[in-house]
Design a protein around this nucleic acid. Structure first.
Lengths: 237, 237
DNA sequence: GGTCGGGGACTAGTATACAAGGATGTTCAC
DNA sequence: GTGAACATCCTTGTATACTAGTCCCCGACC
């Protein structure tokens, strides 16, 4: 549980243009704590405690928590309490299925329609970033996510990534159980290069193969992790 | 705007087992009104009015509305009002992209792993239902949805359909602009049969082709509709 | 007649109060 | 010593009150 200084009415910091950042800020803060396992699965959280922690009333906290319920990260049981959900192996498998299906479609479309050169350059920059920080797991992960996201944003269909974001949190928790990743970063970077190259070459089939290889590699870790951390994981398959 | 009799504290009707059905009930009711275009795009709704309509306080209504914000169905502007979103052509295209990608993956997996015979029988029953009520658009649509959902539920990955459900509402509104559908129901039913048969035959490639044919047929209507109803649609592509 | 300003009637955002049910610990009976 | 009943505390769910910002109309003034 991280200590968070009271938000102190963000409205004073930000110009409060259109939306209240309060709820979103609280939701993201809690979400981050859950994904980084500062809030462990099964832990009980209290809306009152959170309200005190963030220096607001229960109302914004409650709205934030409800958002996390939709994401399957917390489970609120009336008159009992609010609990961090255990990592459901079935949910992880579902997220994996979804991610592979979607990313294949994304890269196929990117390879078919072509991507704006600027986007391609950004993707290349992401790879360079990965090379530069291959020893720093956190920065590597960030560049990794940026790379994937780049294509989702590039195919000009609006916010496709947000769909994945929501599901991704399910196995992002798993990923935090064992940083650094088991797969050598050189392999990952090589796979990223193959994915980018397939899009540049406008070859949808090659893109699909590359994505499939990559995600199979990345996601097969889940099984090992699930076996190693039975205390956080409910095996419901 | 439908008149809805006050919920009168659903807790009395339902056993109030675990969750409060109040918020969910309100959310679904509003959602239905939006999708069926009883609440037109651009219309202003007031949390106070809704609260009066449902016979509750603002709190549950507000929580329900926030859920609809996540689904992109309403837009709440602080201190101004809550408005039904216009149908965003980009969102529709995104939903279409997502649905094709996911359903292809679902049917491929169903064809690869095979489906429980009971599920296959249910899918067949759904088709029979479609044949029986091909003149009743509403019942046909229900059986249509049930058919598609059957496979999403059948691949044993948890609630995959809910992802689609959320996106589907975007062009469900479009669909309601012109019921009955333009594509003859005989064609749809034949396509459904092809999809089911491919799964039964355990032929993933055939399944993919069948799904692609079907969804391309169903979803291509959107372009025509978008051109015909410019008042409800914002062309942001 | 046109324009600017002020006030009232909305809006959503937040805080607080209350209600209802579960968990837990203590106490009393056996 | 053990077990059951009860009281208290704590939980979330809901209702209500209050705050702050926006819109719009109406009147006054130019």
């Amino acid at each position: 549980m991280t200590h968070v200084p009271p938000l102190g009415r963000i409205s004073e910091n930000r110009p409060m243009q259109f939306a209240p950042p309060t709820v979103a800020a609280i939701r993201d803060a809690i979400r981050r704590d859950i994904i980084t396992l500062k809030l462990l699965p099964g832990a009980k959280v209290s809306e009152n405690d959170l309200a005190r922690r963030f220096g607001t009333s229960r109302t914004p906290v409650r709205e934030a928590v409800l958002g996390l319920v939709d994401q399957g990260l917390v489970d609120v049981r009336p008159q009992r309490g609010t609990y961090i959900t255990f990592i459901s192996l079935r949910s992880v498998k579902r997220a994996r299925f979804l991610r592979i299906a979607l990313e294949i479609a994304i890269f196929r479309k990117a390879a078919e329609d072509g991507l704006h050169p600027a986007r391609l350059a950004e993707a290349q920059a992401d790879i360079d970033e990965q090379v530069a920080h291959c020893d720093d797991p956190e920065r590597f992960t960030r560049a990794d996510d940026a790379f994937h996201r780049r294509f989702a944003d590039g195919i000009d269909l609006g916010d496709v990534w947000s769909i994945l974001e929501q599901e991704k949190s399910q196995f992002d928790r798993l990923r935090f159980l064992s940083l650094p990743n088991v797969t050598p970063v050189e392999t990952l970077i090589a796979q990223h290069r193959a994915m980018l190259q397939a899009v540049v070459a406008r070859d949808p089939d090659a893109a699909e193969r590359a994505v499939n290889d990559h995600l199979s590699e990345v996601l097969k870790v889940t099984d090992k992790l699930a076996a190693r951390h039975p205390d956080f994981i409910v095996n419901d398959v």
